[in-house]
């Protein structure tokens, strides 16, 4: 009887998890490192304080959070950002704050962060595509920054813009979206204590594919509202442009609050699947305002949320 082929390879012959994880982290952190940010707090872990706004749900694994992203600046595939974002230079980084503010200007990121206490905020993230994650963000409230630059009384909305740098963001070489990526919030939404400017996750500096070095996190809205790699914040009087809303206003409203009762025209928003459950993961019901209704429902009192979706 002929000898049967026997597999003498084991899982231990595959690149060890620690090695590939550290390789990915190295790639994610390469931008920060390459620029010589030795003094950056990220390398040794960022000191944070816990927050009462954190959920007690278990966060997704780092590999899931950094390996499954929508960040069209780096390509439309879910794994494109992890593959391509290492090219992004995140230091130096400055954010232009302008419009209806008392102290407009171009602020270096280090100056923005100086003197701030960073918090760990473990938030649910609900993508408009009906999947979700739980992410342990590191950041501070947007209101802190807005208070510091002085919002003038006539301001009613906040407008944000992502970096445009096609040399480092290969997705921007194609007109997939109308670059720059832009987003907006009503001023009361922007000032809400849940609204975060995040600079890291899992106690480390923000991986590039997740929107380094600074991004918005609005946990009660679909993920695309949480604009990444921000270079401009403007206080404005009229409702600003928002990229996905411009792309397809019927599918993506300006508010885009998580709402299980208002379907996306192409799929139901009534349920979602948490990333990480494998091939047989069950769907779970989506919660109104992604479960943050107690905190934010008051912002929309009297509004028809089917109309202002």
């Amino acid at each position: 009887m002929p000898a049967r082929w026997k597999n003498d390879l084991n899982w231990s012959d595959v690149t060890p998890k620690a090695v590939y994880l550290s390789r990915r982290q190295w790639m994610a952190g390469a931008g920060a490192l390459a620029a010589g940010a030795f003094a950056g707090p990220g390398m040794a872990g960022i000191t944070t304080v816990p927050s009462r706004y954190s959920t007690d749900e278990a966060p997704n694994a780092l590999e899931e959070i950094t390996g499954y992203n929508n960040f069209y600046e780096f390509g439309t595939g879910k794994e494109d950002p992890a593959d391509n974002a290492h090219r992004l230079t995140t230091d130096p980084w400055s954010v232009t704050i302008d419009g209806l503010v008392d102290k407009p200007g171009s602020y270096d990121l280090a100056d923005i962060l100086a003197g701030l206490t960073l918090e760990e905020r473990i938030y649910r993230l609900r993508c408009v595509e009906a999947w979700s994650m739980v992410v342990p963000w590191v950041g501070f409230e947007l209101a802190t920054l807005l208070d510091r630059v002085g919002v003038q009384p006539s301001a009613r909305y906040v407008y944000f813009e992502t970096l445009v740098r096609p040399e480092e963001m290969p997705g921007q070489r194609y007109p997939i979206l109308d670059w720059p990526y832009r987003e907006g919030l009503r001023l009361d939404e922007a000032m809400h204590p849940l609204t975060l400017l995040a600079t890291g996750l899992y106690g480390e500096e923000m991986p590039n594919q997740n929107g380094a070095p600074i991004r918005l996190v609005v946990p009660w809205k679909y993920g695309f509202k949480s604009i990444k790699s921000i270079v401009r914040i403007s206080l404005v009087e009229d409702q600003p442009e928002a990229t996905w809303n411009m792309q397809n206003p019927r599918e993506y409203g300006f508010y885009s609050n998580v709402n299980p009762e208002v379907d996306h025209p192409r799929w139901s928003q009534a349920s979602e699947r948490k990333i990480g459950g494998g091939l047989f993961a069950r769907r779970v019901p989506t919660q109104m305002f992604n479960g943050y209704g107690d905190e934010v429902a008051g912002l929309y009192a009297g509004m028809d949320l089917a109309k202002f979706y």
Binding site: G67, Y68, G276, L279
Partner: peptide
């Protein structure tokens, strides 16, 4: 691939 992680962290959509 879907059963062993070869299709990424969201294997259902990928499959």
């Amino acid at each position: 691939l879907g059963l062993t992680g070869g299709l990424g962290v969201e294997p259902i959509k990928a499959l």
